[in-house]
Design a protein around this nucleic acid. Structure first.
Lengths: 151, 151
DNA sequence: CTCTAAATAGTATTCGTTACTATTTAATAA
DNA sequence: TTATTAAATAGTAACGAATACTATTTAGAG
């Protein structure tokens, strides 16, 4: 695990455990795309066969609270996690459900003003482009119509 | 229920049942904001006390497939439903979880080109601004930090 | 090395959602 | 109008993701 995470954990009074380090390692290995808790459990068990799913879920929540991770969600594929490497958005594949970071952000002062004009206190925002990645375009493509309108 | 929905249902070989009409009525009454399945069950039972939760869930899925409803999701408050009244996005309150439609869309040819440049086939997109509505700003405001980083 | 609060493994439980089944009903045609 | 039938319903069971619980282990400080 990158030593910077050790510092970050300890500065919040959290212990550096093998389980935590492994989870951070796994997410660091897949910086390009997000992962579900279940996927993380699977990969974690390749190195720590006895790691408990509860431990993974609990740590994912803890690490989100510390700001080390970000948690995303979308209809049809539960929560996704990624290292919090700064603000960005995603392309979401409706076939394989993978998310890939994109370098575009729609937020600007005009939009913010529009929201705040109605008394809304803006804290955050989310933008995702849904479609089919190169692989899924070629192979068996799942049409939006077969997904219960949940695109 | 608006008669147009009857036609729409029957043209797809679906029967017009009191349960379906009630669900559409309820969502039509709350055009301003989205609702969870559970909220819809609660309101439906005020008029049809014996309506089954399964019936509501099943019909929400059916109506989404027909394109009459749209289904949205976000971390921490499950799925939300709304009448499919055309393309729009939402302000999402992190306090009361209500969603209010906004008249702004960040999608344009520039963004689309950016996504398609990498071989991604764009089908849809989603934009939401998260924060606190006027009511929740005044009252007990739930800080993002207490929400497990799931804003 | 000792001590202790924190973290873990394993299990049970919760909650939203879906699946199943016997019964009812909407819509068509006689 | 009534008969027919596929679709829809109510009620219950089952499912899966996530959380809660508890006895045991462990990281880290003294």
């Amino acid at each position: 695990m990158l030593p910077s995470y050790d510092k970050e954990l300890q500065s919040h009074g959290c212990k550096v455990t093998p389980q935590r380090s492994l989870i951070l390692d796994i997410l660091h290995e897949s910086l390009a795309h997000t992962m579900t808790a279940d996927e993380i459990v699977g990969l974690a068990r390749e190195q720590q066969p006895n790691i408990s799913a509860g431990t993974v879920y609990r740590n994912l929540n803890t690490l989100c609270e510390l700001g080390l991770l970000k948690c995303l969600d979308s209809v049809g594929d539960g929560r996704h996690y990624e290292l919090n490497t700064g603000h960005h958005h995603h392309l979401v594949c409706l076939g394989c459900r993978q998310r890939v970071a994109i370098d575009f952000c729609p937020m600007n002062s005009e939009v913010r003003d529009l929201a705040e004009k109605s008394g809304f206190a803006v804290e955050d925002h989310n933008f995702e482009i849904k479609g089919y990645c190169t692989k899924c375009r070629a192979g068996a493509k799942r049409s939006p119509d077969t997904n219960g309108g949940m695109i």
